[in-house]
Amino acid sequence: MSAPLGVILAGGQATRMGGGDKGRLMLGGRSLLDHVIARFDPQVLGLALNANGDAARFADLGVPVIADSIDGFAGPLAGVLAGLDWAATRGADTIVTAAADTPFFPCDLVPRLRMAAEGMAHPLALAATPDPKRGMARHPTFGLWPVALRDDLRAALTGGVRKVVQWTDQHNGQVAEFPDEAAFFNVNTPDDLIRAEAML
């Protein structure tokens, strides 16, 4: 399996933050997106940003911007599909996704996802951390996804599937366990941004 391409998921509407591009919020003098790119870029062969609307607003980042092909803000799976379609044009076998509002995710995200999916016909894995109530909490925006399943995903989305784990479970999706729950802390509200400043 060749090294994957990376796709940053920023297609949400950021309603709890009052709308706009959440990835542009500043944390420690840099945007959330800058933090994400700095962690992600060394782990992948190339990066793209999944975002909807005018792509020109991200021109300063120097990465391709890919929009959802499924209408109506269909959630993270629509961003995954956009990433898989982009990767197919680049001749890649897999992508790894990361959320645009999660500035502390692990610097070994990609190798650990790949290790979890080793030996599978279709390498598919989600990051997960310990959860006192559920035992293990999966993080559906952090995953390894095979380009070979993109048409299956397109059909699922067209058929109304929106929950990431509903689709990954159908394809024997694996779990890559990470010990630090705080690594996947995401900034959803103004209070979260204050917490992130303290964590930084």
Rank of each mutant, 00 (worst) to 15 (best):
Thr102Asp: 04
Pro130Val: 04
Met120Ser: 15
Gly62Trp: 05
Ala10Gly: 11
Leu33Lys: 04
Asp85Arg: 13
Ala127Phe: 02
Val164Asn: 10
Gly91Arg: 06
Arg30Phe: 09
Arg39Lys: 11
His171Pro: 05
Ile37Phe: 02
Thr102Phe: 06
Ala176Asn: 06
Val65Trp: 01
Pro130Lys: 07
Gly160Ser: 03
Leu84Ile: 06
Gly83Met: 01
Asp151Phe: 12
Phe40Met: 10
Gly91Gln: 08
Ala14Arg: 11
Gly29Trp: 12
Leu5Phe: 10
Asp41Asn: 13
Ser69Asp: 15
Glu197Ala: 15
Ala92Glu: 13
Gly23Cys: 14
Pro190Gln: 02
Ala198Trp: 12
Ala78Ile: 05
Ser31Asn: 08
Leu84Ser: 03
Gly160Cys: 09
Asn186Arg: 14
Glu177Phe: 08
Asp21Gln: 13
Val36Met: 05
Pro123His: 01
Val187Thr: 09
Ala148Leu: 04
Ala176Lys: 07
Gly159Leu: 04
Ala100Thr: 11
Ala121Glu: 14
Thr141Ala: 14
Gly62Ile: 06
Gln174Lys: 11
Pro42Glu: 02
Asp180Arg: 14
Arg195Val: 13
Gly20Met: 10
Ala182Tyr: 07
Gly160Trp: 08
Val147Asn: 07
Val187Ile: 13
Val110Pro: 03
Trp86Cys: 06
Gly79Leu: 04
Ala121Trp: 03
Val175Asp: 08
Asp191Gly: 14
Leu33Thr: 01
Asp131Trp: 08
Leu193Asp: 04
Pro190Phe: 03
Ala155Gln: 15
Leu200Thr: 14
Ala128Asp: 02
Gln166Val: 11
Pro123Ile: 06
Thr158Met: 10
Pro106Val: 05
Arg16Leu: 14
Phe184Gly: 01
Ile194Phe: 00
Gly19Phe: 05
Val36Arg: 00
Asn52Asp: 14
Asp191Val: 11
Ala88Lys: 11
Arg195Asn: 11
Arg134Gly: 12
Gly11His: 06
Leu109Arg: 04
Asp93Asn: 12
Leu126Pro: 02
Ala176Met: 07
Met199Lys: 11
Leu77Ile: 03
Ala121Lys: 13
Ala98Ile: 05
Phe105Pro: 00
Pro76Leu: 09
Met17Pro: 09
Asp191Met: 08
Phe58Ser: 06
Val187Trp: 03
Pro111Ile: 09
Pro132Ala: 09
Arg39His: 11
Ala10Gln: 07
Ala117Asn: 03
Ala67Val: 04
Gly53Tyr: 12
Gly19Arg: 05
Val7Gln: 00
Gly119Pro: 02
Arg162Ile: 03
